[in-house]
Computed example of a mutant assay.
Amino acid sequence: MSTEVRQQAANALLTAYQGWSIEPLSEQIPDLDLTDAYAIQLAQVKYWTERGATVKGHKVGLTAAAIQRQLGVDQPDYGHLLDTMFHLEDQPIDLARFQQPRIEPEIAFVLGAPLRGPGVTAAEAAAAVQYIVPALEIIDSRIQDWKITLIDTVADNASSGGVVLGSTYGEPFATDLRLTGCVLRHNGKIIDTGAGAAVSGSPLNSLVWLANTVGPLGVTLEAGHVVLAGSLTAAYPIADGDTFSAEFGGIGTVTATFGKDLS
């Protein structure tokens, strides 16, 4: 696919951030492939960083079977986390920033050393982690009605929207992350539960996959970067006034509130 067509697709997605969604790119451009989709994603990242944004990490998406069934895809993807996407815990988040937001509970890795593939092992990935932190990811889509294929979500920066990190920082592997349980609450009521094994067998596997996937593209996961490993449950829609909290066994709790700050 030509660079011009890729840039046109990136421009369409960038324009959609102004408040309206677009038809799936996979329908508009039938021969779009995964390589094109990541190039479209990178074109947007280039646009944002040239205007002052900073890459603060990556997210791995579509790792849980529940999410893959929900969105009709069959493999993980990754997107970029920018400084503009991070929100403070318990501080109201204005939903006007988003179009079709949904929330997911995730375990976040914060790196203490750089990590670059190919060939990264689980042991090397574990050694690069400084600490883990509970997180809530706000996913969003610039594609109408979430009618996405893998190609669409990759091009749309893996449906990234926002991130809320918790205030507790855990030792990376003091517990078996495969067995780490999660309870997701909406306005105080339990709506879902999950375990770390839902994330590619273990959240650590997501970190390994990411390092080995982006490494051949010349990308290093830098010290201090945040990596969201993937959701432990299905994603749930967010409405104005909602409060969501996720409690992770042995790690801690993170809370996100939605609504305009009236203070």
Rank of each mutant, 00 (worst) to 15 (best):
G250M: 09
S245L: 12
L32H: 03
S206T: 03
P24F: 13
A246R: 03
V227F: 02
T63Y: 02
W209P: 00
A123T: 13
A66V: 13
G215P: 07
A126Y: 08
A174Y: 10
I103P: 01
D242E: 15
I139C: 07
D90T: 13
Q44D: 11
V163R: 00
D176S: 12
F248N: 02
I143P: 01
N11Y: 06
Y131Q: 08
H225L: 01
Y78E: 04
L228T: 02
M85K: 00
R69I: 08
L232E: 10
I139G: 02
L62Y: 11
R6Q: 14
G218F: 10
E247C: 12
L82W: 07
K59M: 05
Y78Q: 02
A37K: 02
L62P: 00
W20P: 07
R185Q: 12
V110Q: 04
D240C: 14
T175E: 14
A198V: 09
L14M: 10
L62K: 07
D261Y: 10
S141T: 15
G201W: 08
S231K: 00
S141D: 07
I238C: 09
Y131T: 06
P134I: 05
I148Y: 02
T220Y: 10
L179T: 13
P237F: 14
V154S: 02
A197I: 11
V154D: 04
G252W: 04
R116E: 12
S200M: 15
L88K: 14
G52E: 11
L32Q: 01
P24Q: 10
G72M: 11
L71C: 06
T233A: 15
H87Q: 13
E137W: 03
R102M: 08
A125C: 05
P105S: 05
V60G: 03
A158N: 07
G224R: 09
Q99M: 14
I22N: 03
G230R: 01
T49K: 11
A135Q: 03
Q8R: 15
A125V: 08
D74P: 02
A223E: 10
F98D: 07
D261K: 11
A53W: 11
E106D: 08
L71F: 15
Y131S: 04
H87P: 03
A155D: 05
C182L: 07
L14K: 09
S160Y: 06
A223M: 10
T243Y: 01
A198S: 13
T3H: 15
A16Y: 03
G259M: 12
A195H: 12
N157V: 01
D90F: 09
I251G: 00
